[in-house]
Design a protein around this nucleic acid. Structure first.
Length: 277
DNA sequence: GCGCAGGTAGAGT
DNA sequence: ACTCTACCTGCG
């Protein structure tokens, strides 16, 4: 096990920020102040317990250094991002202050594509359930820390074999065909995941937009959460409303060049979970 | 019962 | 280039 400083890292906020749908949150029996998390990334599994003071990762130092540290983007100093916020922008200051522990995770590209294909016209609760369903149905089994059984994320090869409407059984609704077709694109080589990882933001987004079911918003989410292009600024209904209310002249993307995605997450989180007056 | 939820494709001006 | 609508499904 391993202790993480929680002055600028919050699993709770990351969980609520809705960028990862494979974290589960549970109460910790008798201890009220502690919350347990299970995090599955690709085929990896992690248990963590967080309280006000600290966060404990139940993994070896090697696993932490080799994977989770990068996954949670713990090498980056988010204080640097926050310190660049225009002090006269009271709204963004408040949003960043509220989301002090958010990080842009470095999630698996394929997993992110599927997750955000499913996210459209959907609720976060239902997205979680959809992803859980397809993982239980088509993912590989693994054994976690204390012998806990878990399911990895289904590989493109597995999903590509399905009928286009077959994932409706996992409650994906009309998004079923989007996911199956995306899987086929990967298997056929039409969509080169490894190639996309090496591309700059613009080019990567352009490639992703070729997928059936991927539009501006989903492409930007994939760029931000699956490729760590921090200049991606996904605009959804919540962000649109916030922009209309607080940035009538448009969001100052130039000022936050190369880190607009981080600001987007602060705004998104604040709109959904912040206490607004 | 109706409208909406981290949108997008396709058809119509 | 824009605007309009259908779309699975579950929850208020």
């Amino acid at each position: 096990m391993l202790k993480i400083q929680t002055e600028n890292f919050s699993l709770e906020q990351i969980w609520q920020s809705g960028q990862c749908f494979r974290m589960t949150q549970t109460e910790n029996g008798g201890r009220e102040a502690e919350i347990m998390y299970e995090i599955i990334a690709g085929q990896r599994y992690l248990e963590a317990v967080s309280s006000d003071k600290e966060c404990i990762f139940y993994c070896s130092k090697e696993e932490f250094e080799g994977f989770w540290k990068g996954y949670f983007d713990l090498e980056s100093n988010y204080g640097n991002y926050i310190s660049q916020i225009n002090p006269r922008d009271a709204y963004l200051c408040k949003a960043a202050q509220t989301g002090w522990g958010i990080r842009i995770l470095r999630q698996d590209l394929w997993e992110t594509i599927v997750s955000f294909l499913i996210s459209q016209q959907n609720t976060i609760v239902r997205i979680r359930r959809c992803i859980s369903n397809i993982c239980h149905q088509y993912g590989e089994k693994g054994i976690g820390g204390q012998g806990r059984l878990y399911y990895g994320f289904p590989k493109p090869e597995v999903l590509a074999k399905l009928q286009e409407d077959e994932l409706m059984a996992c409650n994906l609704g009309y998004r079923s065909k989007y996911v199956v077709r995306a899987a086929r694109s990967v298997v056929s080589g039409e969509l080169d995941l490894e190639g996309i990882k090496k591309m700059p933001y613009r080019k990567a987004k352009e490639e992703l937009l070729k997928l059936f079911g991927v539009g501006e918003k989903v492409a930007d989410c994939v760029c931000l959460f699956g490729l760590h292009h921090l200049e991606a600024f996904p605009v959804d209904t919540h962000i649109r409303q916030a922009l209309e209310k607080h940035y009538k002249k448009g969001f100052p993307k130039t000022r936050y060049k190369g880190m607009q995605g981080v600001m987007q997450q602060y705004i998104f989180y604040y709109e959904l979970h912040g206490i607004k007056g």
